[in-house]
Every structure is written in structure tokens, then in C-alpha cells.
Computed example of a mutant assay.
Amino acid sequence: MTIDRAKLHILYLQIRDDQVTRREELQEFARHGQLDEKQFAVLNVFDQPNFAPDYADTYDAVFVGGSSDASVLKPDQYPFVQSAKQLLKHCVDQAIPVFASCFGFQLGVEALGGKVIHDPKNMEMGIYPMQLTSVASEDRLFSDTPDQFLVVSGHKERAFKLPPHTQLLAFTERCPYHAFKVMDKPFYGFQFHPEVDHHDLAARITRYQDRYLETDGALQAILNNLHPTPESNRLILKFVDRILLQKR
């Protein structure tokens, strides 16, 4: 059966507390997925921290974004962490497609039985070369992605152990777990930001520099190293086309 992409209805689990980035991130997902913003139903967890695991049942997919304001390791401080983990576990159980970026990746790792750690020594902030694993060549999203490509990455926490029944798809020199898929399920997690391109990065890192950059000149160093990230950004469209619309 052919699915009309204009009729896709996606639950967007958003973990942003400032209005500028809320709007910006939605635009990014819509732009790179070639979707209309109106196709996304936004559930911002700062506004609605409690929700049922089956909240996503009436949607075609769930997208989960990043966060500059929360930690999956502090559920007492951020009560929405538990609700979000339960929702993602439910999505796996019910085979609801999930595209989880950065904070969403970490939620997925913890929800499905893996482990996330705080690792500021190996923080990534900027544009980095990504390396694919051997199994990525057989994956629906990564099969035609070059073995090495550039991505936008920004995190101080990372996966220490992936959940069982998952496949590692990508890694960097600093971060051994950057993309995974749940085996036989339409669930993808990305520690990097497929929704963010180099223009978006310049705006966001300038806005958030006081939170992430501790040394003089760090902002300028990132801005001096901006490069397009088309293969990374293209993953969102591939997910829409190849997972939600089942096209190759």
C-alpha cells in the first residue's frame, strides 16, 4: 500500500526549555525530512512532564530531539525522563518507528537496558568525522552512506554500554557509540545531530556558548571549522522514505 507522505503524522518529543531553540529544532526536523511542520505534534516535556507510555499509539512515528537543559542521569531533577523512557520502550514493543537524536539517543539507551555515563573529558562540541561499522553496509539508512562522513555533535554524556538486541552503526574517535538500531525494530538512535547542519550549529553554539565552552577562543575555533554535513542531514529523509514510506 502506498502511503502519502503529506499524511504522515509524527509525535515530536521535544526536550527544549527556551523558545528560540524549540522553534528552531522543529524547523530542522521538518526541513531535512521534507515534511511540513504541521505534520508534527509537539510534546514538550518541560511543559508536560507526565504522559502515558501509549501516548504515541496514534502516530506514524516518534521523533526525539536533543537537550541543553537536562540529563538522563538525573530523573529526580527531571521527572519527564522516566515518562520518556517508558514511552520509548513501548514504541519498541509495539514496533512504532522512532528517530532519536542526541538526548533522545541517551533516553533510548537507558530505556532499553544500556548505560549512559557523564564523560566531560571526551566531550564533543562541533563538527566531527564519523566512522561506520561493518554492519552499517546492510542497514536501510546507512547502506549508501560513505564509511566516513561529517556530523554535528554536542554532548558531555554518552553511552557506556548499548542495550541488548541492538546493532552499533557508527562511532567517532572520542565516542565509541554514536548510532544504533534495535534489531528487527524500526528504532534508530543517534548521539550526533542529523537534524543540525553547519549553519544551525553556528547559531546554536553562539547562543549556548556559556553553557558548553569554558575556554577563551573555543567558540571561534568551532566557527572556524564549520563544514557542510549533507550525509548526516540526509539520514532524516532516508528514515522518512525508507522506514515510514517503505521506499528504497
Rank of each mutant, 00 (worst) to 15 (best):
M1G: 14
T2F: 14
A6D: 12
A6Y: 10
K7G: 12
H9T: 13
I10F: 11
T21Q: 10
T21L: 07
H32E: 11
G33F: 03
L35I: 10
D36L: 13
E37G: 15
K38S: 15
Q39C: 09
F40K: 05
V42H: 06
V42Q: 05
L43D: 02
L43W: 08
N44W: 04
V45H: 02
D47A: 12
Q48P: 11
N50D: 14
D54P: 01
T58S: 15
Y59K: 10
Y59R: 10
D60K: 06
A61L: 08
A61G: 08
V62G: 01
G65E: 00
G66Y: 02
G66E: 01
S67A: 04
S67H: 03
S68P: 08
V72H: 00
P75S: 05
D76W: 04
Q82W: 03
S83M: 03
S83N: 09
K85E: 09
Q86G: 01
L87G: 01
H90I: 04
V92C: 13
V92K: 14
D93P: 09
D93C: 09
D93A: 15
I96Q: 04
P97C: 08
P97S: 07
F99W: 07
S101G: 02
C102I: 09
C102P: 02
G104A: 08
L107G: 03
A111I: 02
A111V: 08
G113R: 07
G113L: 07
K115H: 11
K115Q: 13
V116N: 00
H118I: 10
D119L: 05
M125K: 09
G126C: 07
P129D: 11
P129M: 05
M130Q: 07
M130F: 08
T133F: 07
V135L: 13
A136T: 01
E138S: 14
R140S: 14
R140V: 15
L141G: 01
D144Y: 04
P146M: 10
D147V: 10
D147I: 10
D147H: 14
Q148W: 04
Q148N: 13
L150P: 00
V152P: 01
S153E: 11
R158I: 10
K161T: 14
K161A: 15
K161W: 09
L162W: 00
L162E: 02
P163H: 03
P163L: 09
P164T: 12
H165T: 13
Q167S: 15
A170D: 05
T172S: 13
T172A: 08
E173F: 06
C175Y: 01
Y177G: 03
A179G: 00
A179T: 06
V182M: 11
M183G: 09
D184S: 10
K185W: 03
Q191K: 08
H193K: 05
E195W: 03
E195T: 08
V196N: 00
L201Y: 02
A202V: 02
R204M: 08
R204A: 05
T206C: 07
T206K: 12
R211N: 13
R211Y: 13
T215V: 14
D216R: 12
D216A: 15
A218Y: 06
L219P: 00
Q220W: 03
A221N: 11
L226M: 11
T229L: 04
E231H: 14
L237D: 10
F239Q: 03
V240L: 09
I243D: 05
I243W: 07
L245A: 06
Q246C: 08
Q246N: 15
R248I: 14
R248V: 15
